[in-house]
């Protein structure tokens, strides 16, 4: 049943393209897009370009997520950490990261650096917010019980605090992954020489709508893949939660 409306949407798209209500250059038919995928795959090394984009997003994400995790745990665990970190991070968070793109170009040029920094910065905040909240909201009573059973320091954090904060941390990861795709699109507008962004700017100058469609669809697929990935991680990392879920 759930498949009906997407299929209907596809049908409308095909009909619109076919009936020449819109010119083919504005709206290529689904079939033309599939054809274009094949062309891109064989002639423009689509997989390679996709790999370049993924690798960029992954590196930025890794930096951002690690940073957010460390900052979040510090702010969640220690009063001092919270007082030092929370105010500046909450202030920085209100800046739409897209607005920083021109500034980063001025500061870091048009190479890989501004792209990486943009993605890293964008993914730091969701991770920081969710991690710090998760650590702060860990059940004090369970922590106290663990302390009375002589769990201290790193052991207490590793065995009790972090596992209990993990659902929040993974929520942060999910947001960060989604945003990393968004930041990737923005970053790849900066003078890309390879990657999906490069394909798009090429297609833009040659007015190849079918290629643009392909790239948009790939970005969507990346976003979807990111979401699926976190779901799989959640299922694996939180088996104790699955047993609670009411179905």
């Amino acid at each position: 049943m759930r498949a009906i409306s997407p299929l209907a949407l596809l049908g409308v798209w095909a009909w619109l393209a076919h009936s020449s209500v819109l010119p083919a250059n504005t709206l290529p038919s689904p079939w033309a897009v599939v054809q274009q995928f094949r062309v891109l795959f064989t002639q423009q090394d689509l997989l390679g370009q996709l790999g370049v984009s993924l690798w960029l997003a992954l590196r930025g994400l890794l930096i951002g997520v690690s940073l957010g995790l460390v900052l979040g745990v510090s702010a969640g665990l220690w009063r001092l950490g919270e007082e030092l970190l929370d105010a500046p991070l909450q202030m920085l968070r209100t800046i739409p990261f897209l607005a920083l793109t021109p500034l980063f170009i001025v500061w870091f040029g048009i190479g890989t650096a501004p792209k990486l920094i943009l993605i890293a910065l964008a993914t730091t905040f969701p991770m920081y917010l969710n991690t710090s909240a998760g650590v702060r909201n860990v059940d004090r009573k369970v922590v106290e019980a663990a302390r009375s059973y002589s769990l201290r320091g790193p052991k207490l954090i590793g065995q009790v605090v972090f596992p209990l904060a993990l659902p929040s941390v993974l929520t942060g990861l999910r947001f960060s992954l989604t945003i990393s795709v968004l930041a990737l699109v923005a970053a790849e507008q900066i003078n890309a020489t390879a990657g999906l962004g490069y394909l798009m700017s090429q297609a833009e100058s040659f007015q190849q709508t079918s290629t643009l469609f392909c790239c948009v669809l790939l970005y969507a697929a990346l976003g979807l893949g990111a979401d699926v990935l976190v779901r799989v991680i959640e299922k694996r990392a939180l088996p104790w939660r699955a047993s609670v879920a009411v179905r």
Binding site: K141, V142, V160, P163, L164, L166
Partner: peptide
């Protein structure tokens, strides 16, 4: 010395036997 509280205060992310040998 050990404490049993009003609430069980088990660690939800550990299986029962790991809770028993906690610490």
């Amino acid at each position: 010395r050990t404490v049993v509280f009003q609430e069980p205060r088990l660690v939800p992310s550990k299986r029962v036997w790991r809770n028993v040998v906690l610490g």
